[in-house]
């Protein structure tokens, strides 16, 4: 589904990703862990098409197409979804309008009929129940004045409505209470079909109790220095990044 080959990316002339190689097959869940500032969000943003990041080398093939050539909105329409580490506030614009517009844009490109206000409201209420969000959020401005956890839930709500093929969750578990953590996990697990895939960026093994990853990667200094099964996350939690210090040292000096 997704094949990242030797991906290099810079921001403001500073190289952040220094040769990422990663293959995600349909049906898989991949977890990415790694110290602060190692480039996890950069990778996520590059995949979503953030214009501030310049790809200087490498390629990304998504579903057989060159992803890097697509505009960000075309990537979303092609089924890529990024749950932001820092969701953006949009004053004045209601959550329901925002979600409905996004969904209908995506449906249009799929050749599906657009949902009208009634149909959408029904869907929205259904999905809000699943992520346990109060109906008052329907008509509140997007993310404005939401608590940290409410913002993260709102990202999951968007994911649940847009039903992406490839979901990238950037620390969606940070700042969540235990209940919300389970809701996030459920959201990801509901999406899990043989045709879909997820990349979950997290600092905590805790989330991986609920979302069981097929592969865990450790990203250090712009490179994936180690990959393994779900035990790798457990080991990291127990021993810290020290336990792969040789790999880290190698990445730092390279």
């Amino acid at each position: 589904m997704l094949e990242i080959k030797n991906l290099h990316a810079s921001v403001n002339g500073k190289e952040i990703l220094k040769g990422i190689n990663l293959t995600v097959l349909a049906g898989e869940v991949h977890a990415i862990m790694g110290p602060n500032g190692s480039g996890k969000s950069t990778l996520a943003q590059v995949l979503a098409g953030h214009p501030a990041y310049e790809v200087t080398a490498g390629e990304v093939i998504y579903d057989g197409i060159n992803l890097l050539e697509l505009q960000p909105e075309a990537r979303a329409q092609a089924g890529i979804f990024l749950a932001f580490q820092y969701p953006v506030e949009i004053p004045g614009v209601s959550n329901s309008y925002f979600l409905k517009t996004g969904l209908n844009e995506i449906r249009k490109t799929k050749g599906l009929e657009e949902l009208d206000a009634m149909q959408f409201l029904k869907l929205l209420k259904e999905k809000m129940k699943i992520v346990e969000m109060d109906p008052s959020f329907i008509n509140r401005p997007v993310n404005e004045g939401y608590s940290g956890g409410e913002k993260k839930r709102n990202e999951i709500l968007q994911m649940a409505i847009l039903e992406p093929k490839l979901a990238i969750l950037d620390e969606t578990d940070s700042g969540l209470d235990i209940d919300a953590l389970q809701i996030v996990a459920e959201g990801v697990n509901k999406l899990k079909t043989p045709a879909n895939a997820s990349i979950v960026v997290t600092h905590y093994q805790r989330l991986l109790n609920y979302i069981v990853p097929d592969v865990v990667h450790v990203l250090v200094n712009g490179r994936i220095v180690k990959s393994g099964g779900k035990e790798l996350a457990m080991e990291l939690e127990e021993k810290g990044y020290d336990f792969i210090k040789d790999e880290i040292a190698e990445a730092q000096t390279a």
Binding site: L82, P87, V88, I90, F98, T101, G102
Partner: peptide, 9 residues
Amino acid sequence: FYLKSRGIG
């Protein structure tokens, strides 16, 4: 960018 990432351009 947030909007684009939701398919809205």
